[in-house]
């Protein structure tokens, strides 16, 4: 039953948490940025001068991936992965895993949803480029929930 021990070892669970945080949030951002990029390319075919503005909108759903990276880094740092001396009990490992879940789940879904909002905002840029600030706010509303999840993840982590 060596594999069972390996699975329920603290370090593995903590690293699994880091992997979920970076992986899920990153996947959400990738899909969001992708969807926004498709719409941006469409706007550009009409007016290549809007490259900068569309790029800003496309970058918005990218933050979830960064939040995921951030939480993953904090977990790796907390368990001492960079120092080479990992010392985590099984119960701590589960706690790290749990703490990674908010940003993993909210990051994945909000990344996609924010990407769709960004893509829709590209239409605003196409027709009324002067309303960039307003069009950026719709995707930003979605991001709120990723920010809240990040916050909860961080608060949990710092208290494990």
């Amino acid at each position: 039953m060596e594999w069972l021990n390996a699975i329920f070892s603290g370090p593995f669970l903590a690293i699994l948490g880091a992997a979920l945080a970076a992986g899920c949030a990153g996947a959400g951002s990738a899909r969001g940025v992708g969807v926004a990029g498709e719409a941006a390319a469409g706007v550009l075919t009409e007016d290549p001068g809007k490259f900068g503005q569309t790029l800003l909108l496309q970058a918005l759903p990218g933050t979830q991936g960064i939040y995921g990276l951030l939480v993953a880094f904090l977990i790796m740092n907390n368990i001492g992965l960079f120092g080479g001396n990992v010392n985590v009990t099984t119960s701590q490992g589960f706690m790290y895993l749990a703490a990674s879940l908010p940003i993993a789940i909210a990051g994945y879904f909000s990344g996609i949803a924010q990407g769709r909002a960004s893509a829709a905002s590209m239409g605003v840029i196409a027709k009324k480029p002067e309303e960039l600030a307003k069009s950026m706010l719709y995707p930003a509303m979605v991001e709120t929930y990723a920010v809240l999840a990040l916050l909860v993840s961080i608060l949990m982590l710092t208290n494990v």
Binding site: I66, L70, F73, L74, L148, L150, L151, I154
Partner: peptide, 20 residues
């Protein structure tokens, strides 16, 4: 009120990514 927690979260994000 809770929405203002983004002040902290975004500040932390900047610092931690720079540290990474």
């Amino acid at each position: 009120i809770l929405s203002y927690s983004r002040l902290m979260a975004l500040g932390l994000a900047t610092g931690v990514v720079a540290t990474v």
